[in-house]
Each structure stands twice: as C-alpha cells, then as structure tokens.
Write a protein that binds this DNA or RNA. Structure first.
Lengths: 348, 348
DNA sequence: TAGCGATGTGCAAACGATTGCGCCGGTTTG
DNA sequence: CAAACCGGCGCAATCGTTTGCACATCGCTA
C-alpha cells in the first residue's frame, strides 16, 4: 500500500551516487562506467522502477499524447478511423485522448479547449457538421499545436489534412448508373459548406459531362443530414418534373432514410428508384434495401495516414524546423463497391 | 510565434510581486488583497494566461485523466457506452484516454501498461473476450490505480463493476414469446465463460420454470460469436427433433447472422421461426428482418454509472480514505423492447 | 614533471505551480 | 502604551527528471 513508487532519487540514495548518474545510467549514456550502469539497472529492476512520466512530460514540454476530436463514434466511419489512429499512435508510443463533438460547434470548442489545456502534442480533427467558425482552430496555431484534419475538412487556408477524393468514386458511381440505363440521376448531397459535399457535386458534374449528358442543377439538393431533412430532400427530388430514376446519396446512413421515405411512397426500390451511396458500411449488408453500390472511403487508412502526418509534424517540431510553411494535403482515392445480390433480392 | 506562453512567474515579474501571490490571487485565495487580486487577474487575462496543466499534474500527482479500455469501438454497445463515459468525465473536468483491445489479451495488457505509465488516475475496463489471465489487473492494485469494470466483467473477487442484469430481460423475452404461443424456444448463447452468457441461460431457465414449461437443455447452445459458428449453431437448433419455433439470440449482430442462415434454409422469418435478441441496436430498424424484440442493456447509462463510480473512488482516494474495503457492484435492469412493425412487414 | 585527453561523476539549474511558514506594518485591545 | 492580532504578502521547499558544465582521477606523452 504505502509502497511509495521508487524514484530516481531513491535509487541514487541507496547507491550513494547522484541522481544525474542514475538518470544517465538508465538511458545508457556513454559517459557512465559499465559497473555503475549495471548496478543502477539492477536496482531499478529490483525496485520495479518506472519513470514518472508526468515529471518527464513537464520537463520536456511534451506529453506524447494526441487529441482526437470527431463528431460521432457510433458512426462506423469514425470508429474505423479511430482504430487506424490508435494503432498508429500506440506503435509510436503515443497515447490517444478522445472527444466527440456530437456535431455541435460548442462541444467541439470545449473539447479543443480541454485538450489544449491538457497540453496534447497535436490534434487530429474531423470537424462538426455545423461548425461555421474556425477561430478555435486558429488559436491553436498560436499555441504551436499542430492539427491534422481528416475526412471533414474545414474551408481554411494553410492547414494539413488527409482526405479521400470523392470525385473519382462519384464518377465511378455515375458511370455505373448510366451503364445500367439511368439518364436522370439525382444527388442528395450534404451541407454545402463541407468540402466533401463539393467534391460529390464536382464528381457528379464531371461524370455527366464525360457521358455527354446535360448537367441539371435542380437534380442536386443539399441538406443537413437529419432524418427530417433527408425525407424532405428525397421528397423534393421525387416530385421533380424531371424525376430521377436513381439517386446518389451522401452516405449509407442517409441512404437508409432516403430509402425509407421512398418506400413509404410505395416506390419499389431498385425498380422505380435506385440508390447509390458512400461509405460502404458492413451493416448495409443486412439491411432491407441496401444501396446498389457504395463508395468506399477507407476510414482506417485515413486515420492511419493522418496520424503518421501528425507524428511527422511533431518530429519536425522537435528538431526545431518549425517555420516550414508547407502544408500536407494527402488525398486517397475513393472506390465504388458494387454490392452483391442482397437479402432483399432474395425476398422478391 | 516565439510567444512563449505566459507563466505565473512571468506575471509575477511584470507586477513586481512574488509567484506565490500570483498563484493565490488566481485562486481567489482569501489572504490576498483585493487590489492585487484585480491587478493579477487583469494581467492574466490580458496575457491570455493559462495554467500549465502538466506542471500541475506533476505537482499534484494527479492527471485528471481516466483510461478506458474496451474491446471494439465499432460495436454499437461500446460506442454508446463511451459516450456516457465521455460526457460524465468531461462534466467533471476529466479527460478520456482510449484504447481498444480488439479482444486480444496481449493488446489489453499493453494498453494497460501504457496507461499506467501515463499515470491515469483510474481505469474503466470492459475485458477482452479471450482474456483468461488477470494479472495485469492485479498489478494495478499495487499501484493504487482504481479500476471499475463494466459490461464484460472478469471473474475475480474484490472488484468494482457496473453491469446490466440480463436475467430480468431474458424472462421478459421468454414471457413475450410464450404469450405469442411459442412453446419450444431455443437459445443461441455466447461463450460459456462470460457472465453475460450465464445470466441469459439463468433467465431462460427461470422463465420456463415460472411458466410451468420443462427446461430442455438441448435447446440451449453456446458458441463464440463468429459468423461461421453462428451458422453452425443455428443449424444445430433448427435440426433438432424438438425444433424450436423461436430462438433467443445472444445479440442483434448475432441475430443478423442467424436470420441470414434461416433465410437460406427458406424459412420464413416471423412465421416459421421467430427471433428475439439483445442490445436493441438502432440499425436493426433498417434491417431486412429484425428480431421481433430485443433486450435493451443501456450502454450509455452503464458507461455513465461506471464513470461516476470511478470518480467517487478517486475522490475518496484524495480524501485519504483509501483502505475502505467495500466494492461497488452496480446492477442495472435490462428491459425487453418490442419492435414496431418493421420494414419487412411492409414488404409482405 | 608538467601537461593533456580520457573517463566517470556530481552540482545545480530548470521546467511551472503550490503551499506552509514567517515577516512586516498597522489596528485593536487590555 | 505595550501586547496581541491580523491582513497582505514573500521565501523557499517541493514534485521527479534531464542536462550543461565543472571537477576529479588516472594514465600517458612530451
């Protein structure tokens, strides 16, 4: 119980040498004689000595901790991403501090504040849906805490980020639909501000152009991703004069809602109306009417790359080359995954 | 850039007073004159002073950080639980260090090691599936780091834990099925070692007894929860001479596989065979053939309670009453949730 | 024999904040 | 008028570790 944890000073006292010698001995410093080294290391092992990290953190102005701020762990994308982050971090002796914004800007600010005060070495952030104001990120720069954004990237200059290029995946998706005979294709897109939304639209436009189809802007609707808004957006698309026969939806979750709405309207999924979406979640495998295809965004890989990038920034910082004004912009390519015949097919 | 962060000493220097006065002024200590207090607080605000937590952690031998070790964030149960943990922690100015064991004992050990070395104040743990050896937890006791287990509880004496009693929920489930007219009810249970499996079986037995039905042990099968094994177990149950008309399944994920298997056998779900399971996941709402009902285990609440418990242990520790040999064993009641008409119903 | 380079150690400062104790000057009290 | 008291503040130690520098000892060379 009252086993005070052994310290370097304690070891020094017992061996009648100085703390500095002990410290150096434990680090295998070359200037310490072999005999002393051995004696120190032996006693350290015997006493079960473990360095007091809090002291070291303090002294070195470094915590070997990275903060991760993301919207929602219950979304499969993020839980996969955090696995990538964690694996990479632990491999490099870093530790992961977690915070969910639940898509609230307020919460996001708080978390960032807390993490800043806990002196994390760096941050990995996927911003909240509704975040409009980026001051809390700007302030981090002044504190010299590097940030790498992933997946949900704010519209700011001079930032590091890792993202998945959705243009290619979107083009693949549209091509797929066109090949299936669709000509009027709707897009149920996310908030306009998100880079991810812009890319989807961009891909949509490019694909239409490449296929020599006219781009009809009324076929693209933006909405935040709440169920109600998704219903409304789906309704809007389905009531257009030029009614789409297929819809590309922001992601698999949203697609579930959109499908739900369509079914309430007595539409036959995959006959009257087809859906393609993003994320390629495993659950949609079990789902009643999964999208016909889904664009994989490689969350684990994104998490991993983002972490690697951050760690590199940190090691540059340590070696003193702070001011390098280069910004990492890492882009992975997305990829369309066409679903096998699903459960629903078997029903019919 | 080279804006060295302001420290208490810096403030003291500028004001020509001592650091101790500054510290006390910032803490509104009663022995500091109003004038000085104001001057200090003003300058602090002006310089954007923020206390260096690492220094405080070090000095106070406390990190205001709790470690969370759990098997798999991609499981909805755990991502919900961690939300409860996080919310509670942040409310109390604590911060959350995360680690996933991915159900590996080795990984679990490593994470605990890392967290110990990072000097977390306490731990919240849901153990890995395959963990047989609990030495790494025993060792924490010696370091005086309190642990509260949740959901997946190891079979050890003298531990704190929060869990959900599945007996009541199971009884409700069986009663529900019996009321629907089922008489031969199977149970597809998890690994025998898990307390959670034992409880399910116990509930099953009790419910049968209460309904004056004979308990037939052959109707209960255990298996680890891989898809293959689930298929096999389902097959086993469906091939019994006394073939069940309903099966109670370990959880919703497993139920998805069991359903899948049954459908491959051309059985009509909810007609030839009914399923009831545990977890009450939102996804099953969108699923082709969700279980008719599911036992809710309140993960968010479990996370919250576990965190509260841990925080209480920590505050007891601070106030010096270490040795109290009482162990918290908090049990929540589970509850059967009967699903509304689902998508599949609408199909038929 | 003086000087020199290794080699092995210790001293002390530094990181930033907290806190017990003591000091100083002024006011109250007996 | 001296004693006691108190508000307001500073000194210095402390937490555990790292690290630049100085120092001591020894053997070797010039």
């Amino acid at each position: 119980m009252e086993n005070k944890l052994p310290t370097i000073t304690e070891i020094a006292r017992r061996l009648n040498i100085s703390a500095s010698t002990v410290s150096r001995a434990l680090h295998n410093h070359s200037s310490i004689g072999l005999r002393t080294k051995m004696r120190v290391q032996e006693l350290a092992k015997e006493l079960n000595y473990e360095p007091n990290q809090t002291a070291i953190f303090f002294q070195q102005r470094k915590t070997f901790t990275i903060g991760v701020v993301l919207p929602e762990l219950s979304e499969a994308f993020f839980s996969a991403a955090i696995s990538g982050i964690e694996d990479c971090a632990y491999k490099n002796k870093y530790t992961v501090l977690m915070g969910q914004s639940h898509d609230s800007e307020e919460k996001e600010k708080q978390i960032i504040e807390t993490m800043k005060s806990h002196r994390v070495d760096g941050l990995l952030v996927s911003i909240a849906n509704k975040t409009n104001n980026y001051d809390h990120f700007e302030s981090l720069k002044r504190y010299n805490i590097p940030v790498v954004f992933f997946d949900r990237i704010p519209d700011m200059p001079d930032i590091h980020y890792v993202a998945c290029n959705l243009i290619s995946g979107t083009i693949q998706a549209i091509n797929f639909l066109i090949k299936k005979g669709h000509r009027v294709i709707g897009m149920l897109n996310g908030p306009e501000k998100l880079a991810a939304s812009k890319e989807r639209e961009e891909g949509y436009i490019q694909a239409m152009k490449k296929n020599r189809l006219k781009f009809d802007p009324t076929l693209v609707v933006n909405c935040d991703l709440s169920t109600d808004k998704v219903y409304a957006a789906t309704e809007h698309l389905l009531k257009l004069k030029r009614k789409p026969t297929a819809i590309v939806v922001f992601n698999d979750y949203v697609a579930l809602d959109a499908v739900q709405y369509a079914r309430r309207q007595k539409l036959r999924i995959n006959k009257d109306i087809c859906f393609v979406s993003y994320a390629n979640l495993p659950i949609s495998h079990y789902t009643a009417f999964p999208p016909m295809a889904s664009v994989e965004q490689f969350p684990y890989l994104q998490g991993q790359k983002a972490t690697e990038t951050l760690l590199e920034l940190l090691s540059n910082k340590d070696s003193g080359q702070e001011g390098t004004n280069t910004y990492y912009k890492i882009i992975l390519e997305s990829q369309l995954v066409i679903k096998e015949n699903n459960i629903a097919d078997q029903v019919l």
